[in-house]
């Protein structure tokens, strides 16, 4: 349905592809025989923050997993910085500077916090072998991590794990960060920390693709996409995110 000559625009036809850093076009993804994503088009412009909203089970996480390469699309393309990455395994996409903070954090439980952080360097050339010390900027972002360096990752609280997961992704110097519900099930004070950190991240020019339910976090994004039943049904600048849209697409 999309070919190279036609700019992949979403259903409202607003986003143009010129400044696109990540571009998803005509994406169809299946779990076995069940059709999860239906012809999804989405664009993340360089240095912007884009938010995916929608009720549970509409395919937001599936979309992020497909962008990261954990799931294979049946049709459609994923392009990052002009390169098609649809066929690459996840570790090659990480090395192309896409950082991923999954739902449920996915900290390596038996490794120490320090080792978990060092794993973030694996996305850089030379990996942990060349980068043996954690860059202290992550401790400025999340001071709590520095005091827990020798603890096991699995022993941290949910909020601390979330901070660790974000810090780990940042150490790989991503140019696009995929954040899947970073505030889900986390105490309010830590939510504020995380929101502040994400603001600082976007200020440094890293683009962010965010899946989020908290409305005031959503409002920090530049652009929103609303999903329903596996497809993108609405999008626009978050400043124009009206109450009616929120009620229709956000479960909170």
């Amino acid at each position: 349905m999309t070919n190279a000559a036609v700019l992949p625009t979403n259903s409202l036809g607003i986003v143009h592809a010129d400044d696109a850093q990540l571009q998803v076009s005509g994406l169809n993804v299946f779990y076995g025989e069940s059709h999860i994503l239906r012809d999804v088009d989405l664009t993340v412009p360089g240095g912007k923050m884009v938010c995916l909203i929608g009720r549970n089970g509409v395919g937001k996480t599936t979309l992020l997993k497909t962008v990261m390469g954990l799931l294979r699309q049946r049709s459609g393309r994923v392009t990052f910085e002009g390169q098609e990455i649809s066929a690459l395994p996840p570790h090659r996409r990480a090395k192309a500077h896409i950082g991923y903070v999954p739902q449920g954090r996915e900290i390596i439980p038996q490794l120490t916090v320090r080792e978990n952080l060092l794993l973030g360097y694996e996305a850089l050339p030379g990996g942990m072998g060349r980068h043996r010390h954690v860059d202290p900027f992550v401790y400025e972002l999340f001071p709590v991590l520095e005091s827990f360096l020798e603890r096991r990752g699995g022993d941290l609280s949910g909020g601390q794990q979330q901070q660790l997961a974000i810090a780990r992704a940042l150490l790989g110097k991503p140019r696009l960060l995929l954040l899947d519900e970073p505030t889900e099930g986390i105490q309010p004070s830590v939510v504020l920390d995380i929101e502040r950190a994400v603001r600082q991240i976007t200020a440094t020019g890293i683009s962010v693709l965010l899946v989020e339910q908290h409305l005031h976090f959503v409002r920090q994004a530049d652009w929103y996409y609303a999903m329903q039943k596996g497809g993108v049904v609405a999008s626009g600048p978050t400043s124009e995110l009206s109450k009616a849209v929120v009620d229709r697409f956000l479960s909170v």
Binding site: L70, H91, P102, I108, E115, E122
Partner: peptide, 24 residues
């Protein structure tokens, strides 16, 4: 060793290790 940490990471969480850039 660096490879030991990689092996343990892959053992405990294969897909996330791959997402971090470890060639599984």
């Amino acid at each position: 060793s660096v490879w030991g940490i990689r092996i343990r990471a892959v053992t405990q969480n294969r897909s996330m290790s791959s997402c971090l850039g470890i060639p599984t």
